[in-house]
Structures are given as C-alpha cells and as structure tokens.
Design a protein around this nucleic acid. Sequence first.
RNA 1: GUGAAUGUAGCUCAGUUGGUUAGAGCACCAGGCUGUGGCCCUGGGGGUCGGGGGUUCGAGUCCCCUCAUUCACCCCA
Length: 419
Amino acid sequence: MANVDLQRPRGTQDILPAETPIWHRVEGAAHRVAQSYGYREIRTPVFEHAEVFRHGVGDATDIVEKEMYEFEDRGGRTLVLRPESTAAVARALQQASLLSEPPVRVYYIQSHFRYERPQSGRLRQHTQFGVEAWGVPGPLADAEVIALAGSFLSELGLTGLVVRLNSLGCDVCRPRYREALVTFLQSHRDELCGDCQRRIERNPLRVLDCKVPSCQAVVRQGPKPLEYLCADCQQHLIGVETALSALGITFARDGSLVRGLDYYSRTVFEIGYEKLGAQSTVCGGGRYDGLLQSLGGKPQPAVGFGLGLERLLLTLEAEGLLPPAEATIDAFVAYLGPELGPEAMRIANLLRSAGHRIEMEALGRSLKAQLRRAQKLSATYTVILGPQEFARGVAVLRNMETSAQAEVPIQDLPRLIEH
RNA sequence: GUGAAUGUAGCUCAGUUGGUUAGAGCACCAGGCUGUGGCCCUGGGGGUCGGGGGUUCGAGUCCCCUCAUUCACCCCA
C-alpha cells in the first residue's frame, strides 16, 4: 500500500456534504440577483496564457509578480491558473466580438488561484461571484453594480455592511496627482515606515491607506486625491453618489481607499464587515476603462466587482445566518433479515419513482439501529418491512415525529408519504 | 515573503519537575428491550500523541528540522 499524504494542499478547502447546501443557497442567490439585473453568466477557462494577466492586471502588482500559479505545458506554452477573472472575461468577450454590441452585462462564479500565505478568509483557491458591465461609461453603471452587490448581500440576510467609495481619477488627472504625491512623500521619506518607503516607487497610492499612525500623520498633510480630480472625474464621482443616494444605499466617501490592481480608474469601492479581522473586505470593485486597451483591444469602458464567497460564508456564520440543516430524505426503508433486502429495495425504488427521497438500510443492522439512523437523517417516515408484513403484502409506515404507525398495503405507500 | 502561537481519539479538550499499559465528555457500535428512534444504564471498538531526527536508563512532555493550521504584516476576495 502506497503511503499517500492525505493532507489537502496548503490553502485549499474540501467542501464536505454538510457544507454544500449553504453553497447552493449562496450560489442560487447570486444567479437570481444577477439575472434580475439583466446579467448573464459567463465561464472562462481555469487557465489562461500568462500574458492575459501580465498585461491585464499589471506586471508590477503582487498578484502577477509573486502570486501566480504559472507553469509550462507540454507544448511549451506558459499558462497560469487564473488569479482573477476580470482580465480573462475581457479576453473572452474580445475574442467572441461581443463588445461590438454594448452594453454587455455578465457575471461569473469562479475559482481563483493565488500563491499566498493562507489565513482565515484568504485561501490559495477561492471563489468569487463577480459582475461586469461593459461598454457603459456613465456613473449609473457604477451605481448599478454596487446596488447589485447590495441586493445580493441583503437577500442573504446581511445588514450592517459598510460601502466605502473613492475615485482614483483618469489618465488625465491620476498622473498629476501621483506626481504631486511622490514629490511630497519623498520630502518626508524618513518619517515613513519601511513598507511605505518602498511603496513610494512601487505603488505610492498605497501609502494613503497604510495603517501605521506615523504614516497617516504624514499623509494628512499631503496632497488630497480628490483635489486633483479633473472636472469630468469629479462629475462622475458625484453622479455615482447621487445615484446611490436615490437608491437609498448608504456609503462613505473614503479618500484613502486604494485598490491594488493596475487596471482601476475613477470609481473604486469596497464592501466590508469589520468583525472578520484583517480579511474584512468581502466585496471589492471599481471601474476599469483602460483594461481592454491594455490587452490590445479598442478602449471600452467597464465597471464591476468581485465578491469572495468564502469570506461571505464567514460573515454569514458570524452573523448566525447559516440556515439549519434540512432533512435530506423523506423516508427511510428498514427491513429485517437479509432475505428481505431485494423486496425492500423494490419498495425503495417504487417510492423514488413517485418523487420521494429515500434511503434504504445498507448494513443489515438491528431495527433499533435502523430507526436511529432514520432519526439522524431527519426522515419524516420510516417504512418497516419484516417477514410478518411481507407474507401479507403490507409494510409498517411509521411517522417519526408522532411515533404513530400502521400497516398499509405496499402499493399505497407512495401516496401516503409526504415531503 | 516577514514575525508569532498552536498541533493528543471522528469532534471539544485533560495529561504534574521527563517515569508503568495515554484519559474524559460528545459521537459511533452492541446489550439491557431475541421487531421499534429520542431518555437512562452497562459494555465495546477506536490513538503512527502532525511527521522525521536528537538528548536520556526512559520523551505526549526537553532540543533541532519539517508539514499543517491560526493570528498579524505585505497584499487581496
């Protein structure tokens, strides 16, 4: 016997039978809500050519630089397990020429893979429900995807989540702000933490949301991103806020909110749940008008979000919103003595044909053990077949809740059992 | 990638300054009730003490390495 390591790979999760029902519920809500907003599902390959993410997500991002599962296949192609879906979706829409007829509204529920140090709410394989509106430049689209996320979360019973909103500017104003910020930060370099000193070159906007108090003190004196927004970007931000207010969605403008992927422009937002600790952002998104162009296509405005389902489940659990376990069968078929096995099996199939969910005793245990099993499965009924009943063409039908039982003709069983 | 904590039965956990055969509750199986679940009583099965190496007469306990989980950072959903 080979000595196989039974441990799952680091940062992965088995979703066991006890957990699949809640996944079905969450995924079902995602399908319903997305479709109620007119979005249609898209599925892309688990792996893509590496360039899709290099150019789409950005060469200098952590995701591309050190977190991609990259490998060479037997044909010498460099492939990558997708670390996110937006760049892949852009590639797919472009390849199928679907963007010639905007708007294109799509959603996905897909796994993503990142080589990270795992902790709760951060896995190497994780699932995102994502939504994208392509070919829509106006602020109503931004508000729409935020509203969609809100509808989804409230359908699951969540309240008390915080929407944070910011604008990163566009090709016109972002470089101006970035330059002003870098100049400012360099003049205060020795007041910043080590991480932030590195960020000045790598990703200066990140300094804005550093948690170190001394860095925050520096940032407070520096140039404010919103002051550098061009007129168009300002108007866009106000347009998003006006629409959100009209929808009754509460949000907070947060000038320090920065998203790590290169493709974002203008609107960025996060929806978070504080009790989750460090990995508290459940949903993150924004506008990425420049993404398609960076993949070699024609410019196409787009806005969307990604919502981490594992983190969402943690939130639901913390809020006590996981539904109680439901009965998995309607009736359990018990029988006495191995010679009655085939007849019990015939009865079980008779009931299944009538649409009932049936489990039959598989281990030939005592009646006591069989009833215990039926109870454990929350079966509504137990059908008991013993030699005495078999000889007369009847079976005992026992209601597990009331303990009432009666002998009934076998052909009447399908009619007498209810869900 | 950086820093720290934890790892004993399916689950939650005890286990003294290193000292016989590693325990409890829950769960599981059986019997009490020879064909009736829940409550109760009795009994039973189950453990490479995460893995490997070392110190020692002797290691669950001490040391090193390794794997995994958790927490924080980086980053992100």
